[in-house]
């Protein structure tokens, strides 16, 4: 595993850049554990200070130090995105592989539900959840809800690959070797869908974080929990651009773009590495 990392860093520039960007954000998010101020306290520093040596990212109109505030925000947002991506990947792998390999009525039933999840409008449902749960809607609940809504497209993609694999000769070989369907799906077919899982995980994180930001900006989440979305909500609420506190908006947006770019580069380069075709080429066939 370690040698894989070394290889990737040495021979793949995208991976190096991606790793650098993502590490910066992760380190920044981890700094929140050492924050001198609790996340939700306000008016702990002088408000509206531009970036300086004392306040690296400036301070906002609520009297918070943006450096520490944003490090909390990125920790929460990252955690949220990762939880959604992992949970929804688990659902889409299970449904996609089972549907593609088992076929028949299993496929029809699963794809029926799949199509429902593709078709339902997500935004109104999320707002509905907000009205029902109110302040119970924390990062984790929202992540679980988003995961349950965000697997359908990718399950279809995985199913299409699994369908192709089902008719390959090695699958029949595995059947006549007495392997159980679960074993065939998990050990024979999973390596072939991993590239899809990785690249869609990336797209899924962008999707879920984007949704979280949108909801938060409109005030449909628990606005007391610092996330990238709520940071922007408060900035908007205090008319940051109008009163000239530009750093309150520009800095989180720049950091967000860095994170997306880094994740994207990582996904692309890891994808290339684990893609069965390039793996086979490296194995020398």
């Amino acid at each position: 595993m370690l040698s894989v990392f070394k290889d990737l860093i040495r021979y793949n520039r995208e991976f190096t850049i991606g790793l650098l960007l993502v590490s910066l954000i992760v380190i920044f998010a981890c700094l929140s554990f050492f924050s001198p101020y609790p996340a939700q306290d306000i008016y702990v520093v002088i408000p509206d200070q531009p970036p300086s040596w004392q306040y690296w990212f400036g301070t906002n109109s609520r009297g918070q130090d943006l450096f520490w505030q944003l490090s909390f925000a990125f920790r929460n947002t990252l955690t949220f995105g990762i939880i959604v991506a992992v949970l929804s990947r688990l659902i889409s792998i299970t449904i996609g592989l089972a549907s593609g390999y088992l076929g028949g009525w299993v496929d029809r039933i699963l794809m029926f539900f799949n199509d429902i999840f593709v078709a339902i409008p997500i935004f109104p449902i999320l707002i509905l959840f907000y009205f029902v749960l109110r302040s119970d809607l924390n990062t984790y609940t929202l992540a679980v809800i988003m995961a349950c809504l965000g697997w359908a497209f990718d399950a279809r993609l995985i199913r299409s690959v699994a369908l192709g694999l089902r008719f390959r000769e090695f699958t029949r070989q595995a059947i006549f070797a007495g392997m159980s369907p679960r074993k065939i799906m998990m050990e024979e077919h999973l390596p072939y869908v991993m590239p899809i899982v990785f690249s869609t995980a990336m797209a899924n994180m962008i999707w879920s974080i984007g949704f979280e930001v949108t909801l938060a900006v409109l005030g449909f989440t628990n606005i007391n929990i610092p996330t990238v979305g709520t940071a922007l909500y408060w900035a908007n609420n205090h008319s940051a651009m109008v009163v000239g506190v530009w750093w309150w908006i520009i800095i989180p947006v720049v950091l967000l773009v860095m994170m997306f770019l880094g994740l994207f580069l990582l996904a692309v380069s890891i994808n290339e590495y684990i893609d069965p075709r390039s793996r086979l080429r490296r194995m020398g066939s």
């Binding site: 021979y11 390039s278 490296r282 020398g284």
Partner: peptide, 9 residues
């Protein structure tokens, strides 16, 4: 002449 992640062949 191939090069994949440092393995040249």
């Amino acid at each position: 002449l191939m090069k994949y992640f440092g393995i040249s062949r």
